[in-house]
């Protein structure tokens, strides 16, 4: 079953002059079809201004389509009466960790969503505890968010979403403002949630190494889907990715470079180990050929 489905989605901003009169429109999203099935990990890649964040905001009905349709958990985001269901079904984590934490104590922040949903008090406590455990932040439950690191803040934000028991979590560049340690923390947390809670994950990012385990990748450029496919299919097109201003991991570039220089390396290498395996198997081959010749 489709968890998220965007069909011919178009979104236009109104451009206004200094007096606030509409002087024209600008298309941020231009006929996008994106589909995520239940339990899948789908990544949307794109550089700043490619339309990927605007797309993300549609999944939570923060923005509604100018044209086309977005279904979340089978409900049309355009229908006002579906609004709260959509928002509960697709929880959202944003880029700036400081600007999405409402509570002044970690556990109170995690409780904010369930409170809004009208969950009974005892159950709120249960959910808060569970979600904080799920993101590994339970020992910080009484801390002030201001004293946490960026990665920890993002994990609290994720817990806040998890506590609403969504079927799908949308992460809009959750690591863009973090250092490498924080990035790793957040990605590990997301992976754990996928394994333990089987939630659908939509990850919006421009870091390609974050999406190597995705079930499906969409690359956006100028408001359109420029590429779609499995990580292998996408990562094998290094030149094209560079054209779309994406950050191709060094391993992939190195593999591509070696391939261009005539080595027999399969396209779309994503992991360090994969490349090392591939090259060392060549040494073995090399050696066995030599032994054959010697013999």
């Amino acid at each position: 079953m489709s968890m998220i489905q965007a069909e011919k989605l178009v979104f236009e901003y109104e451009k206004r002059d200094e007096d606030g009169n509409v002087v024209g429109t600008s298309r941020a999203i231009d006929g996008v079809d994106i589909d995520a099935r239940e339990g899948q990990f789908v990544a949307v890649l794109g550089h700043n201004g490619s339309g990927k964040s605007t797309f993300a905001k549609h999944l939570n009905a923060i923005l509604v389509p100018t044209d086309g349709t977005v279904w979340v958990d089978g409900r049309n985001t355009k229908e006002p009466e579906e609004l709260w269901h959509v928002r509960q079904a697709a929880g959202m984590v944003f880029q700036n960790p400081d600007n999405q934490i409402i509570g002044t104590v970690v556990e109170e922040d995690v409780g904010f969503g369930p409170e809004n949903l009208g969950v009974p008090t005892d159950e709120i406590w249960q959910r808060v505890e569970e979600s904080l455990k799920a993101v590994g932040m339970i020992s910080y439950r009484h801390h002030s968010p201001n004293k946490l690191s960026g990665g920890q803040k993002q994990r609290v934000a994720i817990a806040g979403v998890v506590a609403m028991e969504p079927k799908c979590i949308v992460l809009d560049e959750p690591t863009a403002m973090l250092d490498p340690v924080g990035r790793k923390e957040v990605l590990k947390t997301v992976q754990r949630l996928r394994e333990e809670k089987k939630v659908t994950v939509i990850l919006i990012t421009h870091y390609m190494e974050e999406v190597v385990d995705a079930d499906k990748i969409y690359v956006m450029d100028h408001g359109k889907v420029a590429m779609e496919g499995t990580p292998k299919e996408i990562f094998s097109q290094v030149e094209k990715l560079k054209e779309y201003r994406l950050d191709v991991p060094q391993v992939t570039i190195l593999a591509d470079e070696l391939k261009r220089r005539g080595l027999d390396i399969p396209a779309g290498i994503l992991q360090k180990e994969e490349l090392a395996d591939c090259i060392s198997s060549m040494i073995l081959q090399d050696n066995s050929q030599r032994t054959e010749m010697d013999g």
Binding site: W84, N96, N99, E115, N116
Partner: peptide, 20 residues
């Protein structure tokens, strides 16, 4: 940003809200 984050977490004023 915060207004957006609050809306995304289904904040809609005091009505129907429970308390932790």
């Amino acid at each position: 940003d915060l207004a957006m984050a609050m809306e995304a977490r289904c904040y809609r004023g005091g009505e129907g809200r429970t308390k932790m």
